[in-house]
Structures are given as structure tokens and as C-alpha cells.
């Protein structure tokens, strides 16, 4: 554990909780992509199956349970409790275009051919692109609520901080996992356009709207 990894985890946690609180407080999930949330639920489920097979630390297990619970809680709020507020007309990204190629890639580029390892690798690849339906939705509606922007910024920052963590671990522990590193870089690059808009607009008190 190092400061980059911890900041990344806390940023990730903040993002997930921010989204839950936003939906709960406003009683609405307008502007949120249910498809991205479905993909994140698949990501956490396939990655954290190791909750049952290996124990790393109380911290790790606790965070995994929180991420899983929050993810399914978000799905429940979006698709059941506040379903009428879900803006499905603008959430039109075809997620099979992400699910299938990630699955195929996880059979091609994987460290070890075991079920757990392939599922873990799949979760890494799918996570890298899971935000695309949400970014697509923002581009289609041309705007995002400020709280949604904060959510996206925290979620994007998490993998960027993990990149710093991997650089740090490479020099201090000789730790190198090219699968997570490349996928993490792809994931972070997808947010770059949004980061630019966030810094130039939202941080100056303006609403995020596309030109």
C-alpha cells in the first residue's frame, strides 16, 4: 500500500458513494447511464470472486464488499426504485460491442489459463471501457449535472492514481503487470476529454455543457 494506491481507492470509493447519494437525494437517476452501471456491476462481480478464494487483508475484503454492494444498490435504484426517472432514450450505446471484444481479448491476452484468471482479466478489460456509455450519453445530451461531473472526475482520477501507484511499485517492489497497466492507461485516456472540460468549466463554477 502506498499513497497513490490509497488515494486511488478513496477516489474510487468517493465516486461510487457520490453517485448513490446523488440518486438518493434527488430521487432521480437522470443523466446517468444504466448501461455503464451494468458494466461496472459485471466488472466488480467477475473481479471480486476471489473474495471466496483468497484473503489479502481486511481492508481489501471490506472495500470489495462495499464496491459490490454499492454497485448492485445503484442498479436497484436505477432499474427499480427510480426507474421512471431513467433516461433510457439517451442511453443508447450498444454494450455488446464492449462486452464481447473484452471477453475475446481476455482469452487471447491473459497471464494464466484458469477460470479465475480469465474472469479477472476480463474485468480489467471491461472496466477500461465501461465508462463509454456514460460519456456517450453526456455527448448526446450535451451536458451533465455538476454532481455527475464530480462523479466522473473522481471515477477517472482513480485509475490515473493507480498508474502512479504502478510506477511506484515498479521501482520499489519490482512489481509489473502489463495487463492492468495498459488497460489502466486506456481507461484514463478515455477520460482526458472530460478532464479538460471539468477543469475549464466545472471547477470555474460553470455547468458542464458541450459546445
Amino acid at each position: 500500500m502506498n499513497i497513490f494506491r490509497l488515494s486511488g481507492d478513496l477516489s474510487h470509493l468517493l465516486a461510487i458513494l457520490l453517485l448513490l447519494v446523488k440518486i438518493w437525494k434527488t430521487r432521480s437517476c437522470a443523466g446517468i447511464s444504466g448501461k455503464s452501471q451494468i458494466l461496472f456491476a459485471i466488472v466488480y462481480t467477475t473481479r471480486y470472486l476471489d473474495l471466496f478464494t483468497s484473503f489479502v487483508s481486511v481492508y481489501n475484503s471490506f472495500m470489495k464488499v462495499v464496491f459490490l454492494t454499492a454497485s448492485y444498490g445503484t442498479l436497484y435504484l436505477m432499474f427499480f426504485k427510480f426507474k421512471p426517472t431513467y433516461d433510457h432514450n439517451h442511453d443508447s450505446f450498444r454494450i455488446l460491442y464492449l462486452i464481447i471484444p473484452s471477453l475475446v481479448l481476455s482469452f487471447i491476452i491473459v497471464h494464466v489459463y484458469t477460470v479465475m484468471e480469465i474472469l479477472w482479466t476480463y474485468s480489467i478489460y471491461l472496466e477500461a471501457v465501461a465508462i463509454m456509455p456514460q460519456l456517450f450519453m453526456v455527448s448526446r445530451t450535451g451536458e451533465a449535472e455538476t454532481i455527475t461531473s464530480h462523479y466522473l472526475f473522481a471515477l477517472g482520477s482513480y485509475r490515473a492514481l493507480y498508474i502512479l501507484n504502478w510506477i511506484y511499485r515498479y521501482y520499489t517492489e519490482d512489481f509489473l503487470d502489463m495487463i492492468v497497466i495498459i488497460a489502466g492507461i486506456v481507461q484514463t485516456i478515455l477520460y482526458c476529454d472530460f478532464f479538460y472540460l471539468y477543469i475549464t468549466k466545472v471547477l470555474k463554477g460553470k455547468r458542464l455543457s458541450l459546445p
Partner: peptide, 10 residues
């Protein structure tokens, strides 16, 4: 090469 067989990250 990779040394990450125990997945200690989230």
C-alpha cells in the same frame, strides 16, 4: 514478466 499472482489491488 509479471509478479502479480496474488491480486492485492482492487
Amino acid at each position: 514478466y509479471q509478479k502479480n499472482n496474488q491480486k492485492d489491488e482492487l
